[in-house]
């Protein structure tokens, strides 16, 4: 039983990083291309565009946090 629990925890950690990473990248792709489009019209928008582009990175940071908690807090209790 314990082995199954370990597998589930580790898999959950992997999924939480992988899926949020994908989600962040996908969101950033759209914002990034829009930002570059806006920049060709008005070059001063570089600063704002750059900041807007990294906004979805929060998703992957949450994912990473969840994974870390799973690995370092939950996993020792299961073992």
């Amino acid at each position: 039983m314990a082995e199954l629990a370990v597998i589930v925890v580790v898999l959950s950690a992997a999924i939480s990083v992988a899926v949020t990473g994908f989600a962040a990248a996908w969101a950033e792709k759209h914002i990034g291309s829009a930002a570059v489009g806006a920049m060709t019209e008005k070059e001063e928008l570089f600063g704002k565009g750059l900041v807007l582009t990294v906004i979805p990175e929060t998703i992957v940071i949450f994912g990473l946090t969840v994974a870390l908690v799973l690995l370092f807090v939950v996993l020792p209790q299961v073992l």
């Binding site: 990175e57 929060t58 940071i61 949450f62 990473l64 946090t65 870390l68």
Partner: peptide, 16 residues
């Protein structure tokens, strides 16, 4: 709450 949790990046970015 999500605003506050957003500061977790102080740890996460450094860790990466």
């Amino acid at each position: 709450m999500s605003n506050i949790l957003s500061y977790v990046r102080l740890m996460a970015i450094g860790l990466s």
